[in-house]
């Protein structure tokens, strides 16, 4: 095992646009769960709606990329309304069930051959992102930053992805410091108390679902632009649970939590992956083979999620008093 390479890979995750995509989804989930107490187990679907919305906007509707992004975000709003209106009047658990089911339904709809002309079916969609690189103001060159060498396109992608993260974090911070955010936190604590004070709880929950969903939609957009394709198999439940792990790692009711959680998560994931692979290669883990290593890490994610919820539900940055699990 090459330690230098492993370290380089791990640190590369810090600046990976995919990390940024997960962070955006986790920021959205912090609005849902951390600040409002909504149990959304279908964040992957919100991201997927954003991703497919944009791809279909470009390929089928022939919109310019920016217009397609707007269209994608409109689709996310529609999706949030569709899920939220019937369920947000009910107890919190119903939203959890409906979101997890809706995420699966959406993914099957995207992969079924029936709509393949629009969705690409199980092959997904590609070749929608060219315009993104025509906006690139970064001069053409190889950028050598010590550990990495990035092309101007890689620099541009990272700049945009992490600017989106920064802007989102600032927006959420502004929202949560305002009286609007106060109502959300009140709802998280006790809906009826907030109702008794004259607030339209249902409407606030719906707003929270939409806004958190929009951040996830943006995450989906960043994800597929950096991959330059959309695959239906991306938006599986594992995607959602990775977002949950990122969020809980950093702290659900915090602004910096999703960012720190996301970076830490992917660094750790790469390190364990490389380490395990290395140990297998030198024969220290005779019961494992190389393909199993890739799967082992998902077992580790599950384990980490369990340990977090049990021992540090407030995450790294969270305040224990502000967030306990009360569903």
């Amino acid at each position: 095992m090459d330690l230098m390479l492993t370290l380089q890979l791990a640190i590369g995750e810090l600046f990976s646009p995919l990390t940024a995509a997960y962070i955006l989804c986790a920021i959205g989930l912090s609005v849902h769960f951390g600040f409002t107490g909504l149990l959304n187990f279908g964040q992957a679907a919100f991201a997927a709606v954003g991703a497919y919305g944009m791809a279909i906007g470009v390929l089928t509707l022939k919109l310019p990329l920016l217009g397609a992004m707007g269209f994608a975000l409109l689709c996310v709003v529609a999706f949030a309304l569709f899920l939220g209106i019937p369920t947000l009047r009910l107890r919190a658990d119903y939203l959890a069930i409906v979101t997890i089911a809706a995420a699966e339904v959406f993914r099957y709809l995207m992969s079924t051959s029936g709509f393949a002309e629009v969705t690409g079916g199980s092959n997904g969609l590609s070749q929608f992102g060219y315009e993104f690189y025509t906006w690139n103001p970064v001069p053409k060159a190889e950028y050598n930053l010590g550990l990495f060498t990035w092309t101007e396109e890689q620099v541009w992608l990272r700049l945009v992805a992490f600017s989106a993260v920064a802007v989102s974090a600032i927006l959420v911070s502004l929202m949560m410091k305002s009286p609007w955010g106060r109502v959300l936190k009140g709802i998280r604590e006790d809906e009826d108390a907030v109702r008794s004070l004259g607030k339209n709880v249902f409407f606030y929950k719906l707003q929270s679902l939409i806004i958190g969903g929009l951040f996830a939609g943006l995450g989906g957009i960043v994800f597929v632009i950096s991959m330059s394709n959309v695959q239906p198999s991306t938006w599986v439940t594992t995607f959602t649970f990775m977002i949950w792990t990122v969020l809980l790692l950093g702290g659900a009711a915090t602004i910096l939590g999703p960012i720190a959680g996301g970076m830490l998560f992917f660094v750790l994931l790469t390190l364990t992956n490389e380490l395990l692979a290395g140990l297998v290669a030198i024969g220290w883990l005779p019961f494992l083979d190389q393909p199993q290593v890739a799967q082992i890490r998902f077992i580790l994610i599950g384990l980490a999620l369990m340990l977090l919820v049990i021992f540090r539900p407030q995450g790294i940055f969270g305040n224990k008093k502000e967030l306990r699990f009360n569903g």
């Binding site: 106060r182 936190k185 009140g186 998280r188 604590e189 006790d190 009826d192 108390a193 907030v194 109702r195 008794s196 004070l197 004259g198 607030k199 339209n200 709880v201 008093k321 502000e322 967030l323 306990r324």
Partner: peptide, 23 residues
Amino acid sequence: SSYKVARRGMIRTFQLTKSLSAM
């Protein structure tokens, strides 16, 4: 609905208190 009742000026408290603990 209950929130509209409160907006119209009829505000109640609860026998079992509903303080918002984490605020």
